[in-house]
Design a binder for these strands. Structure first.
Length: 255
DNA sequence: ATGGTAGAGTGTCTA
């Protein structure tokens, strides 16, 4: 089974690219972030014609997550237990959607950005991660993947220039500790060993052309799922040229 | 410190 995660930065503006990606790599399950659309706004015809089911949630123009699967899409759950509303303009429930696809529990996650370390949104980010960790600690009895845009660079090598991030989110000790907490609980990041390199490049300043990016899109597997991973790759070609998302898709093969 | 680009949708906000 082949699963993938992609921060698509608007599903409606890139539906043709999504369909081409599914076809090009024969993806069974695709997790999307930043869909920026409500479920009733999604263009589904091309996906359904290809045999895919879709589950999505999104409340406004900045947010939203989705799962697209051709191997089943059961027990769909939006958000996770213990995640209440915040003063965030973005509804937290639009940041996580889970389903069972082909016997694997998959969560499409869009971790809050944090904006600035002194912004209330940064506190919200850390709290959101703590609540996810607590909920996810009870999910490892079935093969489970926590996939998506984590908005954290776990190591200095995951940033093109850490000196430019002295006052920025994504690299703070608290964020890295939050990420490490999942690993301490037994989750394994399964893409890095097969697919080094960045997954996100800012639209500004020709960052992609100069390969000045961040590695922030990850797949964390439960022990049983991690043991099944045979390969992973980053589809950098998808990031090239006009009309690309600022993130590249990350693809993982399960045996 | 600021600004640069892109997508939501017409005002800025978010990333």
């Amino acid at each position: 089974m082949r699963i993938a995660t992609w921060n698509v930065n608007s599903l409606r503006s890139r539906i043709d690219r999504v369909e081409a990606l599914l076809d090009r790599h024969e993806i069974d399950v695709l997790a999307l972030q930043e869909t920026k659309a409500r479920e009733d706004q999604l263009p589904l015809m091309g996906l359904q014609a290809r045999g895919y089911d879709v589950a999505a949630v999104g409340f406004n123009q900045w947010n939203g997550v989705a799962l697209i699967s051709r191997v089943g899409l059961d027990d769909v759950e939006v958000g996770f237990p213990g995640m209440p509303g915040y003063g965030d303009p973005v509804e937290p429930e639009a940041r996580a959607i889970g389903a069972t696809c082909g016997g694997v529990r998959i969560w499409s996650l869009y971790v809050p950005n944090g904006r600035k370390p002194d912004d209330p949104h940064y506190v919200y980010k850390l709290d959101w991660l703590a609540r996810l960790r607590e909920a996810a600690s009870g999910w490892q009895h079935v093969p489970t993947a926590l996939v998506g845009d984590w908005n954290i660079c776990p190591t200095d090598d995951d940033v093109f220039d850490v000196t430019q991030f002295k006052t920025s989110t994504h690299v703070t000790p608290a964020e890295r500790a939050a990420f490490q907490g999942f690993l301490d609980d037994g989750w394994a990041e399964v893409t890095r060993a097969h697919a080094p390199g960045y997954t996100y490049w800012d639209y500004y300043r020709q960052r992609f052309e100069r390969d000045r990016g961040l590695k922030i899109d990850f797949v964390l597997g439960s022990p049983e799922l991690a043991a099944r991973v045979t390969h992973a790759f980053i589809d950098r070609e998808e990031r090239a040229g006009q009309g690309a998302s600022d993130h590249a898709p990350v693809v993982v093969d399960l045996g």
